[in-house]
Design a protein around this nucleic acid. Sequence first.
DNA 1: ACTCTCTGTTCCGGTGAGTGGAAAATTTAC
DNA 2: GTAAATTTTCCACTCACCGGAACAGAGAGT
Lengths: 264, 264
Amino acid sequence: MATMPLPVDAQPIDKRSGVVQRAFALLSAYDESHVALPLRTLARRSGLPANTTLRLARTLVELGALEHDAEGRYVIGVGLFEIAALAPRGHGLRRLAMPFMEDLGRVTGHHILLKIREGAEAVLIERLSPHGSEPLSFRIGGRLPLDSTGGGLILLAYAPNDIQEEVCRSFTPLPGYEAVQSGDDLRRSLAAIRQDGFVAARRSSPWFCAAVAAPIRDDSGAVIAALSVELRTDRLDNAEANALVPAVVTTARAISRRVSPGLL
Amino acid sequence: MATMPLPVDAQPIDKRSGVVQRAFALLSAYDESHVALPLRTLARRSGLPANTTLRLARTLVELGALEHDAEGRYVIGVGLFEIAALAPRGHGLRRLAMPFMEDLGRVTGHHILLKIREGAEAVLIERLSPHGSEPLSFRIGGRLPLDSTGGGLILLAYAPNDIQEEVCRSFTPLPGYEAVQSGDDLRRSLAAIRQDGFVAARRSSPWFCAAVAAPIRDDSGAVIAALSVELRTDRLDNAEANALVPAVVTTARAISRRVSPGLL
DNA sequence: ACTCTCTGTTCCGGTGAGTGGAAAATTTAC
DNA sequence: GTAAATTTTCCACTCACCGGAACAGAGAGT
């Protein structure tokens, strides 16, 4: 919350303690651009005193959650990878969807993304990119906004009302995102998405790109994930994107059919 | 505490405590066939009293390491998936290797596996299976023996001596694994693998299958992972497997070239 | 060579977070 | 309907955890 001015460090300063919280504060000190941290940095980024950091880090190494890299820095360990592989909404979902995603990728020749919603953000579960080309910077396990990307809009459209309101209220117009310019535009879009059962969005600003996305449901009909095709286009051609809609929707339905009862 | 003769439970009873250890005892209670556990089972499998389990589980839910599924049971949460995605030897390695693995899979038409060594076992990091067919039961994040599978032998051949000795000493002949019948056979195999820089192994027992594997090295030349092609064969035909050797070896070298300095 | 700085490490007494028994609330079985 | 199993709250004890301070080691600069 109150994140003060603070020189350079300063983090989610954990006021009240709890050993487990602190341990996860260490693990949360890592991000895309900080995958290997020396003790000092780990301490700064987690907001813990040096000795406490050392003690906890050693415990976590012992448990396999952290490891030492060649330079002696701390990195996230494979032990955590092993445990996380059992997450139903993570690799569990991926396992079901993967073969279908491969088919879709081969047919369309574009990026195929699988996302779920976590709070007011989307988390990328799996990403298949056509052969060598990798212009997409989205990273597996990374977070994405709900209000811009194709898959995000799907997840938002079927999210609980309070989440939708939260996102719509704080919506700020994005460059090159002509179709939606305000929170009310967004609300209308979401209603349209629920109506259609898919979304085809375009954007011109960072690059010319388009996305087609459809919901994946569990056996009770609840939306648990979003499948999307993302492509970079030279021009704002609707025809190409629209042609993808049936493929994406049917693939999403095929995956839904495979979702075992009670996967969350 | 005295957990009686016990019907089915029994665990790696953690003698003296440590909150973080207990928290991970909860997370370690999950495995392939136990992905969703009610509190009671979680308590039994982790060896902790019910109330302690509840308190810890709630903390972990708060931190995103655990979640509730539709039935109210506890499952591994996406929060853990997000953190684990930053493991250099996990998704970090996968990210580098994936495009090459896809090429190899497309050319050969067989299963492509990527493994690393963790102690005296192998951990499956990524697996690509040809289209629909999925006869392979190996699960991403799962553990595999070092002494039988193709990739495992590579990892063992380049493992520290104490690990090699440990595995060789405790080696017991496997059905249908003609080439290696004793610890000494295994030692000879490992020497041959180091000599050749690859392994081509066959097995006839559970099924007729063959594997070709090669090491992936970091910039210092240390072996950090194993790339393998696994195929089921109707007969013990050497020609088919041997034809794969150059493809696997060169692909492994190509991946090695991409390994950034100091990935572990 | 010396010092100065920065990082990693050990030591240790005080204390509050964590513990588990017991009992209440809740759900499930019968 | 009762009974059993599971989940949850309560609470006083105590030991695991905390963090300041002091130490050790690695560079870097003069």
